[in-house]
């Protein structure tokens, strides 16, 4: 026991005092790698990266520095990476948010598809459609029939306009053909408070923070938005299964490098990331925050990015969201 205490204390102190020894290695990486994140610390995307980075840095024998540069649509972070040295030491945490930004903004200082060299996806995470546990809405069909019977009565809570959650709700509205008011909130806790205080009847938000509310019986998850069920919650149907065929929206995270990064470095990173993602340790930790670990080839990521840009462009146009 005493030994463990000592070890834990020691590891804390080391992390605090950690000096990186610049070992003069020939091969990449010979110095710490920076990953720039377009969000503040603490969100699902940020946590995903931090979990993977911990493993990855052990594999690569180099520190991975997470640099948060929050800005609307993650533009500042993406721009910094697009213009960084393509030497593999500056990487971007890419997400579906970048795909949304490509359609939401009138002009971007970079080309979302061509200015980046995709490396690999890290994980996918679901968005949930949920209501209060004592709500009369049991299924997606209940929601649709209520909205059709009482046009304009239904309030749907999401986070800010143009977020993936907000667009998923817009997509649902459009595909289900219902009339409802989408009430945007600043952050997820506000959405939850609004739902529990009956200001909105249903809400769309990341599955991860909702799970604990669901498990303690406060919230009922009506359905999830991706095209397959979430493995730890096999009883929750997808929206597509519950009467809105073809509906699909999910969020993902990935690593990308500046466009001209040498192929050898991309391949090395891709291999290491896929290896890290296949460990049980990373998988479990990610599942706990609601993320399904899933790597892939750089080409997979490129195709995903292109198809998502197309999908969200359609939703944004249909929902009449003003371009920024």
């Amino acid at each position: 026991m005493r030994r463990r205490t000592f070890l834990i204390t020691f590891s804390i102190v080391t992390i605090l005092l950690c000096f990186t020894t610049y070992a003069a290695e020939q091969n990449y990486p010979t110095k710490p790698i920076r990953v720039i994140v377009g969000f503040g610390p603490g969100g699902v995307a940020d946590l995903t990266l931090r979990i993977v980075a911990q493993k990855l840095s052990a594999q690569l024998g180099q520190q991975i520095l997470v640099e948060n540069r929050p800005s609307a649509g993650g533009i500042v972070a993406a721009d910094a990476v697009a213009k960084a040295q393509p030497d593999g030491y500056t990487l971007l945490l890419m997400s579906n948010g970048n795909a949304v930004s490509a359609s939401l903004f009138k002009s971007l200082p970079y080309d979302t598809v061509n200015d980046f060299a995709p490396v690999s996806t890290l994980g996918f995470f679901d968005i949930a459609m949920f209501a209060k546990a004592d709500s009369k809405f049991q299924t997606v069909k209940d929601v649709i029939s209520y909205a059709k019977a009482n046009p304009g009565k239904l309030n749907i809570g999401t986070i800010n306009v143009g977020s993936t959650q907000n667009l998923s709700a817009e997509l649902f509205k459009g595909m289900a053909g219902i009339e409802a008011t989408i009430v945007p909130y600043k952050n997820s806790p506000d959405v939850l408070v609004a739902l529990r205080g009956n200001d909105v009847q249903i809400a769309f938000d990341m599955l991860a923070p909702i799970i604990s509310q669901y498990k303690s019986g406060v919230v009922r998850i009506i359905a999830i938005t991706s095209n397959r069920r979430f493995s730890p919650l096999p009883d929750i149907p997808t929206i597509a299964e519950s009467g809105v065929p073809g509906y699909q929206a999910s969020s993902w995270n990935a690593i990308a490098a500046p466009a001209k990064t040498p192929k050898a470095i991309i391949d090395r990173l891709n291999k290491e990331i896929n290896m890290a993602l296949s460990t049980q340790e990373v998988k479990t930790k990610l599942l706990e925050i609601g993320v399904t670990a899933q790597g892939g080839t750089p080409e997979d990521l490129k195709n995903l990015l292109i198809s998502d840009i197309k999908k969200w462009r359609g939703v944004i146009e249909r929902a009449n969201i003003p371009k920024q």
């Binding site: 605090l16 005092l17 950690c18 000096f19 920076r34 520095l65 997470v66 640099e67």
Partner: peptide, 8 residues
């Protein structure tokens, strides 16, 4: 800031 607190 850089060595102890690891600010980027």
């Amino acid at each position: 800031f850089v060595l102890l607190l690891h600010l980027p």
